[in-house]
Design a protein around this nucleic acid. Sequence first.
DNA 1: AAAAAAATACGACTAATGCCGTATTTTTTT
DNA 2: AAAAAAATACGGCATTAGTCGTATTTTTTT
Lengths: 217, 217
Amino acid sequence: MKLKICIAEDNYFLTKAIKEKLSFFDDITVKFDAKNGAELIGKLEENHNVDVVLMDIQMPVMDGIKATELVKNKYPQIKIIMLTVVDDDEYVFNAIKAGANGYLLKEIDAEKLHKSVLEVTKGGAPMTPSIALKTLNLLRNPEFTATINTAESDIKLTKRETEILIQLSKGLNYNSISDNLNISPSTVRKHIENIYKKLQVHSKVEAVMKAKKSNLI
Amino acid sequence: MKLKICIAEDNYFLTKAIKEKLSFFDDITVKFDAKNGAELIGKLEENHNVDVVLMDIQMPVMDGIKATELVKNKYPQIKIIMLTVVDDDEYVFNAIKAGANGYLLKEIDAEKLHKSVLEVTKGGAPMTPSIALKTLNLLRNPEFTATINTAESDIKLTKRETEILIQLSKGLNYNSISDNLNISPSTVRKHIENIYKKLQVHSKVEAVMKAKKSNLI
DNA sequence: AAAAAAATACGACTAATGCCGTATTTTTTT
DNA sequence: AAAAAAATACGGCATTAGTCGTATTTTTTT
């Protein structure tokens, strides 16, 4: 029997795009769609014979987090996959707390979306690699899961700077870091100098703590 | 350039099986293997030019969790994928806490193993669906993650030492701490020296990180 | 192709840290 | 009261860290 899914997404074109992606697969059928959480709840009240909901996070009237919570409370058997353009920490964590079964970026291609839908119905938890990583990071830092930071700091570290911060967080000194990353100690020092400027700190401990608090590492 | 990986696995036949699985792919080369965590550490000390470690969890002498912790502390850039026969909650959580980047079941087929190795080097977090689910469940139940590490660490800091550690965690230097606590800088240094001995560390960052991990601050 | 950003690298200098030993005073436990 | 633990304190010395300035190469963006 075909898997019955529905879509909650405020952007009409994206809804259409998702439907097109899924149209290639004959084991899935889109039963209906809704343009926000409230509409989804209403339609599910009429007919909740649905296997999977593809849920946008950002929607007017009622967003995907709240809708997930309501749907999961009333119809726990329905699997919910969150769709989002950004893999923001706060969204990921709140969606998981609300009971989402999977979490994908909207840019996902047709085949992966199809696989994810099948996976979630088998009890799996489809996630894009970047989001899987975020869940691990959240687990590693339980102190930050308790108090979600709403203040989005616009501190941007480069890839290399992040790598070096991670090494710093292990208590490694300049020489060890330079050895690990195959660059000269001078370069390590310069990177750290730049990191300090960006974070506005003046020591390793400060840098590591601030980075952890800002979810930079 | 080929990805350099190594294998830590006590069962010779499984090591061989993994090597065979990977032999189909010419972008990966197995540099060496070890039959337990201790041997892995030893070999990495000679040559840590390795991108990914495939690590068994259950091994004699030193298990994969402990080995992961040590490797990650010394060479944070090395990616570690845990391999296990069971997706037990506690194992998964401890492996993640230790710093594992991915978590796969040993029954994985060659292609998925290959994909996972590539994914982890790109910063992703490869997981089998059942384990991805466990991470979500762990996140949804913070009370479980909070109360897991009760067994270990009979490290006891005195009241003063704890006070000083908290100051350290703010990135304060000896003079500021001495000023804050109304004791001489010499005393601060001595306290910190004692803290280091208790925690078996050699720097501020290490001390703060270890204290956080052990719920001492 | 040009411009901007990121990564690389060195030298010099001062400040801070980590580690050693030793020692006295205060507080707590037995 | 005696013993143990904790807190206080100093000096010395080698290493590491933090802060300048400057400059080239590589990668990414426009």
